[in-house]
Nucleic acid binder design. Sequence first.
DNA 1: TAGTTAATTTACCTAGTAGTTAAATACGAC
DNA 2: GTCGTATTTAACTACTAGGTAAATTAACTA
Lengths: 119, 119
Amino acid sequence: MSPDKLGSTFAALADPTRRAILARLASGECTVTELAAPFRMTMPAISKHLRVLEGAGLISRRREAQLRPCRLEAAPLKDVAEWAERYREIWEGRLDRLDTYLKELQTKETTHARKRRRK
Amino acid sequence: MSPDKLGSTFAALADPTRRAILARLASGECTVTELAAPFRMTMPAISKHLRVLEGAGLISRRREAQLRPCRLEAAPLKDVAEWAERYREIWEGRLDRLDTYLKELQTKETTHARKRRRK
DNA sequence: TAGTTAATTTACCTAGTAGTTAAATACGAC
DNA sequence: GTCGTATTTAACTACTAGGTAAATTAACTA
């Protein structure tokens, strides 16, 4: 489908209105009007946000009479969590010593290279 | 500082170039030139990306002679992971039955309400 | 002091996004 | 068919984002 699926997921999640919509949908399906209620925003604006969320695969919509109930699709959030998890050991600080070691090593090498060139 | 910290983190992560920069920084500090090397993009463009990452708290920079080594700051990624984790039970499908149940209940209620109104 | 390298700033362009209002569509009720 | 409700589309404005080229700052080198 679209390239950079993860990118479009992050882009969709960057807006607080859209994150609030997802939070609401976590407790079950909602119609567009229900989703719009908490916000001081017109319906078309909400409609656009829903389109973005749908484009990112974060929601799906069915037709039910005049209503368009929205449903949360959490699969892309799994991808987000898995992507972030790759950095866990870094934010937990486990690599601090290794990181510092590598940095110092790199600095030394650079310094040596310069000294050599200088001669 | 800035409102919607999580939002600016997601916005920063939405760009594939920036995610690649973070991946590179995961294995240690890099200078701007080193970070720019893999991309067909001018230095100012990279500079802007770094500014965005710094604004989101995802990197920090020091001064070392003419160089500006960048360092990954993974704390915001922890926030991202924790935010996404709230939806884990949904993407794992554990709530599927409950969700379906709630949906049906809601549909019935709506139908009843309509029938009642009709009378 | 002049020259080189590393990086940023400035100025500019293009395309996309978030919001608006007003009109159009889709469906059920009468 | 006509009316009312739910939702989307169209057209517009204001702002932001990603990119470029050219000028500028900062620090080392000779």
